[in-house]
Write a protein that binds this DNA or RNA. Structure first.
Lengths: 192, 192
DNA sequence: ACTATTCTTGACTAATCGTTCCAGAAAGAG
DNA sequence: CTCTTTCTGGAACGATTAGTCAAGAATAGT
């Protein structure tokens, strides 16, 4: 047969994801991708197809990697409330790191979901996954007696998802810690 | 002297705003703008400078027009809760109109605020204005006896802003009315 | 070693990007 | 009318865009 690839597909995809994450879809050029991914232009096209296909694959990878992180945090034994607070606090901390790239799914939703069906599909899938994770966490908190018996845990899970995405966005515009902490405070007060 | 402009500056700016609103900054080309604004390419540059300056002016115009609309809705005599519900419901309805362009400030925050100081500044200004409007509405509701004595109206106002922006975003990804209504239901339950 | 396949490389499309230039048409002031 | 200014339209700018081509280097199986 023939020779093997000289790069790891997953590593290259990871790099591509980071570029899209930081710059968005339109503002990212193939030249940017070639440079950051560290692979050749032709290899890029051979391996991932065109820019749009690569973007969609990057969304998939983000979904796998970042969702798993979220699931682990929420499913770890211990206080559900503390886990949720940790999650929201992480977003606040993100506002003070240099990049302020937000969340790739959030960005995709804003930039492309309105005019690209595939993107809308993937962000919707992400939404249900996150909502589901919140829902499971809430049910666990109730079962373990930490949370009061919420009237509608499904609605609260959706509410948490919404506030979470809102916070990611708000943290792009303001660096005022008090503002962001106020949001988290009131959001989580729904659980009391 | 010389001849007058053959177009209304404000009308042209309005058109430009609509294009940026629907397509975002990067995805909008000067060609798009020329076509939709209905003015000549050169006139565009003479009147508004370059693309970026035009975008910033479009943000200003959005701020003026849409904020006034928001203020009027919230300051109109009558139930504050109903006004808030109306505001959030409007966002839900927006999810079922063809365009799904969201909110220009929201889009700007997501696409540019992370890497453009001027945009960050303008979106931050918008945030404080909206937060302020929510705050005034809450105080009015309390004074008029409609709302209970919230512990921290400032924090609740920020929370409402955050949920509002979150909803605008969420409505880009999902068309499931129940999901969006669940979010509004729990969000507004904070006032009970 | 030979051959078949595939990877890598950099030059190369054609189109589009934001922006500018220029010539001429239009219109107010004298 | 003339003069002066401004608006208009199209052509053009160089840079960059996404994507392709062709040729050589590398490595597998035989």
């Amino acid at each position: 047969m023939a020779r093997h690839k000289e790069f790891e597909r997953d590593e290259a995809l990871q790099k591509a994801m980071e570029v899209f994450w930081a710059r968005g879809y339109e503002a990212t050029s193939m030249q940017n991708l070639v440079e950051h991914m560290g692979i050749n232009r032709q290899s890029l096209y051979d391996t991932f197809g065109d820019k749009h296909s690569l973007y969609l694959e990057a969304l998939d990878r983000y979904q796998e990697v970042e969702s798993r992180r979220l699931f682990e945090l929420l499913e770890k034994p211990g206080s559900v409330k503390k886990a949720l607070r940790k999650l929201f606090t992480n977003v606040i901390e993100g506002a003070f790191e240099g990049q302020r790239r937000g969340c790739l799914m959030n960005n995709a939703m804003s930039e492309l979901a309105g005019r690209c069906k595939a993107t809308a599909e993937k962000t919707r899938h992400n939404m249900t996954a996150v909502e589901e994770a919140f829902h499971r966490a809430l049910l666990r908190g109730i079962k373990e007696g930490e949370l009061k018996d919420l009237r509608d845990p499904r609605a609260v899970a959706r509410f948490l998802y919404n506030s979470f995405q809102g916070l990611v966005l708000t943290a792009k515009a303001t660096q005022d810690r008090k503002t962001l902490e106020d949001v988290v405070k009131v959001t989580l007060s729904v659980l009391d």
